[in-house]
Nucleic acid binder design. Structure first.
Length: 122
DNA sequence: ACGATGACGTTAT
DNA sequence: TATAACGCCATCG
């Protein structure tokens, strides 16, 4: 965080979002609303997704670890080719998808249910 | 400056 | 549990 990602975003506000997303540990996922809330934006979950949407193609940010409150992969009609990529990446991190293509936020949610690395099933 | 859009969320049916 | 409609607010044209 010492250095600003400074992709091409005019608003420093986005920098916070990028930084926060980078703080998500592997094997876990966060929701847009959660990130927004942590940034002090209670109902701006949309803008969070928008911020990631703009930076995803130009940054190394683990945007794939961000999903919606339903635990589903949110994808834009524009990036429909990337949705598969995101799912593939998450599976690689050890995240399991439900038959309905959903993630169990109860288990993979960030900062995690056990937070302290409970991982009892391991 | 104004109007329309949108990686979402929540509540209601 | 799934589907539908409304709300919030920054960014884009």
């Amino acid at each position: 965080m010492s250095s600003q990602p400074q992709p091409q975003s005019p608003s420093p506000r986005y920098a916070q979002i990028y930084t926060l997303v980078c703080q998500i540990p592997p094997g876990q996922v966060a929701t847009y609303g959660q990130i927004a809330k942590l940034l002090g934006l209670p109902n701006q979950a949309r803008q969070v997704g928008y911020a990631l949407f703009r930076v995803a193609s130009d940054s190394e940010i683990p945007w794939h670890r961000v999903v919606n409150a339903q635990g589903e992969i949110s994808y834009a009609p524009q990036r429909q080719g990337n949705d598969d990529l995101q799912r593939w990446r998450l599976e690689t991190e050890g995240i399991v998808f439900d038959p309905a293509d959903r993630i169990n936020l109860k288990k993979y949610g960030w900062p995690g249910p056990g937070a302290t690395e409970a991982d009892p099933l391991k």
